[in-house]
Amino acid sequence: MQKLTIAELAAESVELLPGRETLLADFNVALISASNASLAANVLTVCSSASSAALQGIVVAQS
């Protein structure tokens, strides 16, 4: 970690945050829905294999 010099510290500036009532009224909501489905069947077979590919979907809605 690098130490600050007095000149660097003096050059820093600050900004006031908005009031608490302003922060409470402004919000974002993001609804996320994810699904992953795969199916493989190997029924009544001898010395065989079954493979499956998974389909994935993600939906994001932000307001």
Rank of each mutant, 00 (worst) to 15 (best):
M1I: 13
M1L: 13
M1Y: 11
M1F: 13
Q2C: 00
K3N: 12
L4C: 05
T5D: 04
T5Q: 04
A7P: 03
A7R: 10
A7W: 03
A7H: 08
A7Q: 14
E8V: 05
L9D: 03
L9F: 02
A10D: 03
A10K: 11
A11W: 03
A11K: 02
A11Q: 14
E12R: 09
S13T: 10
E15W: 00
L16Y: 00
L16M: 01
L17D: 01
P18Q: 00
P18M: 06
P18R: 01
P18W: 02
P18S: 08
G19K: 07
R20S: 02
R20V: 08
T22F: 12
T22I: 09
L23N: 08
L24K: 15
L24E: 14
L24R: 14
L24N: 15
L24I: 11
L24S: 15
A25N: 07
A25L: 11
A25S: 06
A25Y: 01
D26F: 10
D26E: 15
F27H: 07
N28C: 00
N28W: 01
V29G: 07
A30R: 13
L31W: 05
L31A: 11
I32S: 06
I32R: 13
S33Y: 11
S33Q: 12
S35I: 05
S38M: 14
S38W: 08
L39H: 14
L39D: 04
A40W: 00
A40V: 10
A41E: 07
A41K: 09
N42V: 01
V43G: 04
L44H: 07
L44C: 00
T45W: 02
T45C: 02
T45K: 12
C47W: 08
C47K: 09
C47V: 04
S48W: 01
S48Y: 01
S48K: 09
S48A: 13
S48M: 02
S49V: 08
A50T: 11
A50G: 12
S51V: 07
S51L: 03
S52N: 10
S52T: 15
S52V: 15
S52G: 02
S52L: 13
A54W: 03
L55F: 07
L55E: 08
G57Y: 00
I58M: 12
V59I: 11
V59P: 00
V60Q: 08
V60S: 07
V60H: 03
Q62N: 10
Q62R: 14
Q62D: 06
Q62W: 02
S63F: 11
S63G: 08
